Simulated scan of single mutants.
Amino acid sequence: MGAHGHETLLKDPAIEEWVWMRNNTHRYFKFTRRTAPALVTFGLVVPALTFYFASATQDKVDLKPMVKKSWAEAYAEKKSE
């Protein structure tokens, strides 16, 4: 930016069109044989696998900290030395 803020921003029409199309994909989307596998994969398979692995590992991982002392106790002990 310059001292006075009088710069002009050049816009590429191709980039502007791409951004507009990307932001408005819902207007042109159609359920076809080409889009069906992606929809099934990301709409059903991925969530199902995520749920399966989350439920299979639930309560099997111990997330407690490994230290016996709290951070405040360790800090106080270190400071007193």
Rank of each mutant, 00 (worst) to 15 (best):
N23R: 03
L10T: 11
T57E: 07
G5R: 02
T57M: 14
V61I: 15
P47A: 11
L39T: 05
K69D: 14
R27K: 15
L44G: 04
V45K: 08
R33N: 14
S80E: 06
A48D: 06
L49P: 01
E7M: 12
V67C: 08
L39R: 04
H4Y: 08
V45F: 15
W71G: 12
M21G: 02
V40R: 05
E81A: 03
A48Q: 07
G5H: 07
S70W: 01
Q58P: 01
A54C: 10
A3V: 03
Q58I: 11
G43H: 03
R27T: 11
W20L: 11
K11G: 02
A36L: 15
T35A: 03
Q58R: 15
S55Y: 13
A14G: 05
R22K: 13
A72Y: 02
N24A: 09
F31N: 00
F53R: 10
N23S: 08
H6L: 10
V45M: 06
L9K: 04
F29E: 03
L63W: 05
A36K: 04
V46I: 15
K69I: 03
D12V: 08
T35R: 05
E7R: 07
V61H: 09
Y52A: 15
A38D: 10
H26C: 04
T25K: 10
L49G: 04
